[in-house]
């Protein structure tokens, strides 16, 4: 049994099949990229996995537990962390408090009315921040962070409850090329060291080809190809509907020389 098994997942909006019979599985510690043109159904797919959207049909099984029909909060408690395309953090709190918030929730203390929140789980928060290299900024207000740092903070929040699976929706959107690579290297190293699986969508082909163990290409709600970076790059169908002539991202040869 894989960590995550998706079978026959379907979703229609007003008669249009947004996701049509999608099947895939994800192994422990694997980094799987989901790519495809806008409107191909990536976000729909993602939102069904994390419980924000109800599926029409199919099954999503996480360690044997059926996720469809559960709400996002309970899915999170099973050990699935998330990051968002546009960072979602608590702007009026310090960096450490952002992580503490996730820890407080994990320990089910959100209805506590008396103790000081800033004193709760501070050590754990610090070590999470250390993992993503944010420990020096722990006391800064989250609202003044640079965008790249926000992304790293979001990663620390997502890791707070020790998840086995990370769902990352366009993790590097809006970042500079160098930052993208640094962030994904960080994600990859954490994934390897803590044996966390990562499922991510991404538009930056450089990132995708460099940091995924396996890729899936979605088009018009269906998976049209699955395979390694090289297999996908040379797939004619994928080239036609998505990648184009390859003039707007690193082609394979260049990347090999630079890597």
């Amino acid at each position: 049994m894989s960590l995550l098994d998706v079978t026959n997942l379907c979703k229609s909006f007003g008669g249009v099949r947004a996701v049509n019979d999608v099947n895939f599985s994800l192994e422990k510690g694997e980094m799987l990229a989901l790519i495809g043109p806008n409107g191909a159904g990536k976000t729909t797919c993602f939102n069904m996995l994390n419980g924000q959207l109800k599926a029409d049909r199919g099954s999503v099984s996480f360690q044997g537990q059926e996720l469809l029909g559960m709400n996002p909060r309970d899915i999170w408690r099973l050990g699935i962390g998330r990051t968002f395309q546009i960072t979602a953090t608590f702007a009026s709190m310090t960096v450490r408090e952002n992580v503490q918030m996730a820890l407080i929730s994990h320990h089910r203390k959100v209805f506590s009315l008396w103790n000081r929140a800033t004193n709760s789980y501070a050590q754990e928060a610090n070590s999470l921040l250390q993992q993503v290299g944010m420990e020096h900024q722990a006391d800064r207000a989250c609202g003044v962070l640079a965008y790249g740092d926000l992304k790293r903070l979001e990663l620390a929040i997502a890791l707070a409850h020790g998840p086995q699976l990370l769902l990352m929706d366009e993790p590097t959107a809006g970042m500079a090329p160098q930052e993208r690579i640094t962030l994904m290297e960080l994600v990859a190293s954490i994934a390897k060291s803590s044996n966390v699986s990562v499922l991510f969508t991404e538009h930056d082909m450089d990132v995708v080809f460099a940091h995924s163990d396996r890729l899936m290409v979605l088009n018009r709600g269906e998976i049209i190809a699955t395979g390694t970076a090289d297999e996908i790059r040379s797939n004619e169908v994928v080239k036609e509907v998505y990648l184009g002539g390859g003039s707007t991202f690193d082609t394979g040869e260049k990347e090999k020389t630079s890597a």
Partner: peptide, 14 residues
């Protein structure tokens, strides 16, 4: 103009 857009569309944009 190319942010968040599929490579094939980015080529059209060019």
């Amino acid at each position: 103009p190319s942010e968040g857009i599929a490579p094939v569309i980015v080529e059209q944009m060019a």
